[in-house]
Amino acid sequence: MSLADLPLHDMRRAASLDALCGLVSERHARGEATVLLAGGTDWVVEQELKPPRPDADPLPLVVDVSRMDELRGITVTRGLLRIGAATTYLEMRRHPAILERAPMLVEMARELGAIQIQARGTLGGNLATASPAADGVAALAAYDASIVVKSVRGERRIPFSALQTGYKQSSRAPDEVIVAVEIALPPEGSPWIWRKVGTRRAQAISKVALAGIAVRSEDRVVRLGLGMASVAPVTATLFQTRALVLSRPLPAITADALDAAVLSDIAPIDDVRSTREYRKHAAKAVVRGFLRDLGAPV
């Protein structure tokens, strides 16, 4: 195991976000890698799993961003919730504004790993690792969040729908730092779901997870966000399913049509945690459950 390499890395802190962007970009231009270390709950574990490093391979420079003010904190401004990329899940699930306005995030954070992971792990790390099993990313998909990124070229916002480009690939440039996520909050009291299927163990990665947020007006759903983990090479946004539900009154949604839409939206695989067939079954079941709660006869 290459945990032994850890002490060989140099670590710095950056004086400001601009200084961090400058450092990352300079190094990137020279072909040198920089690791932004937040909670370490992905990166440190990865170091252990890595094969030993050939002596000639340069080590990346590690920059501790876990306490960088510009990447931290939670604010709500005119219905826009902004969460700094280095804010921990524990801070999120205890924050009054999130407790009041984004209960789905509270539930997601409460079920992400155990409390020791929640006290360190961050959305920045979850997004950068970009695992299709990532719970935080699934929740952000459901909120149609924007990802605020910054580099020496300036700051920009990546809408969630334009973020994922392939398995663990994203439209964020390698020298762009994730600064925050922004969520246009649905009206207070909007129905939501957070469901992790197939495991009771706190630490286990889910076989399927569904994040959902809906705004209802009489017998129709007028805004719907869905994000599903572990059913495709990227976090599934269930586009066909959203389109179906938004296209007709709730009483006119049938279980068959809903199941068909879900199946066309996902491409699950067999792996150590579950099978393709089970994942299809679970995906259909959790979406039906949410729609049933919303009042569809499914």
């Binding site: 945990l3 850890l6 670590m11 270390l37 909670g39 370490g40 709950t41 440190v44 574990v45 252990e48 590690v62 501790d64 876990s66 306490r67 524990l90 790993g113 155990a114 409390i115 020791q116 992971i117 006290a119 360190r120 630490q203």
Partner: peptide, 26 residues
Amino acid sequence: GEGECGSCTVLLDGAPVNACLVSIGQ
């Protein structure tokens, strides 16, 4: 040594964390 078992739990500013995943520099 990978955040799963909790036997290395310590408090960092009052919050429980896995000491196997925290760097001393942090």
